[in-house]
Design a protein around this nucleic acid. Structure first.
Length: 341
DNA sequence: ACGTCGACCTGTGGGC
DNA sequence: TGCCCACAGGTCGACG
């Protein structure tokens, strides 16, 4: 159940082990894994083949890597067979560089216009987009590693590193696809309605508060609404609400500016804590490009702790069915709003 | 336009 | 022992 911190760990893994490598072969083992690529699996593979994967970006729970191309994208007179290898991509035989920023540098929304490096193909910018859904993993594995039970997509590279990228997903809620990016901000088109996430330096706190006040909904629904704020899932929503002492059914229209600010602070803190726990071992090769490291030993105060004493007041934590899932809260610290049941 | 809710998936675990 | 169902939950499209 990757939320933002887990996805960020994956992004760092991709930046370290995948960025800069050129795709040689793509094998789609399960069509549902590319269902967001409307042109189908064959087109998905064709779009990737020959492309060099660029910097790893993240917004909320989405990941993407811009596609450059060492060779010409269209078959020209000199395109087949004679295109030089390793001109603009990673030098073959060497570990891919993590340039230009350190892999674990705080992510930023990409600059509006990135300078093209020599050899990159002109034309519409495209990107490989990934969402892990509920159970998705991106693994960097040796070629000869046995296929995982739920291996959906395999991407091989044209270098000599001996590893490939695998998308493994038990429940198939996640998937990969290739999309054009908007020229304005370089973000893949399907993400245009996805709000910035709270760890993004450009996140607009005042605008978020204004939007909350305008909505006629409750605070937890708003936290899970990707068009208002992205990256928050059921787990961190409950945790942040617990830290802020807010009941999940509190109408957003009643939130004051200081409360919104405190809520955001707690969202960032709980995500930061999880990232610190999950990011500690991501750089061990092959294993931890999967978003799971650190996940299970995260310390949670509310989520999943039904019946256990609240860490603040000792009152047993409650679980309530909510929107076909669950909400965990302390009935004493997080009083329900007066007017609602 | 905005808010709500069910469908999509599959493995696990508890209850009978 | 075996079967059934609740549950996990992010996203999108349908509906009001």
């Amino acid at each position: 159940m990757p939320e933002l911190p887990e996805v960020e760990v994956v992004r760092r893994g991709l930046a370290r082990w995948v960025s800069g490598r050129t795709v040689a072969e793509v094998d789609v083992a399960h069509p549902r894994a590319v269902r967001r690529h409307l042109a189908g699996a064959e087109d998905f593979a064709a779009r990737l083949k020959g492309a060099t994967l660029g910097e790893a970006h993240r917004r909320g729970k989405y990941l993407w890597l811009p596609l450059g191309s060492v060779r010409r994208t269209l078959a020209g007179p000199a395109a087949s067979g004679t295109a030089p290898r390793g001109v603009a991509g990673a030098p073959s035989g060497n570990p891919p560089e993590c340039a230009p920023a350190p892999c674990d540098a705080p992510h930023q929304t990409p600059r509006p216009i990135r300078p093209r490096s020599a050899g990159q193909t002109l034309g519409g910018e495209a990107a490989l987009l990934a969402h892990l859904g509920m159970s998705g993993q991106l693994l960097v594995q040796p070629h000869d590693a046995p296929a995982e039970t739920h291996l959906r997509i395999r991407i091989r590279f044209d270098d000599e590193l001996g590893t490939e990228l695998r998308f493994v997903d038990q429940r198939t809620f996640g998937g990969l696809s290739v999309h054009e990016s908007t020229p304005q901000d370089g973000v893949p088109v399907p993400l245009s309605h996805i709000a910035l996430d709270p760890l993004d330096a450009a996140f607009d706190e005042a605008a978020f508060h204004t939007a909350l006040r305008r909505r006629r909904t409750t605070v937890k629904r708003a936290l899970l609404d990707q068009s208002l704020i992205s990256g928050v899932g059921n787990i961190y929503a409950d945790e942040a609400l617990w830290r802020t002492r807010l009941h999940y059914e509190r109408p957003t229209a009643t939130l004051t500016r200081p409360v919104t600010a405190e809520l955001l602070t707690h969202i960032r803190e709980v995500m930061g804590d999880a990232l610190a726990a999950g990011g500690t071992s991501f750089d061990s090769l092959y294993v931890n490009v999967n978003g799971e490291s650190g996940y299970f030993d995260r310390s949670l105060d509310a989520y999943g702790r039904e019946g256990e004493p609240c860490a603040r007041c000792g009152t047993p934590i409650r679980r309530r069915p909510w929107m076909n899932r669950s909400s965990y809260y302390c009935p004493r610290c997080q009083r329900p709003p007066r007017a609602s049941s």
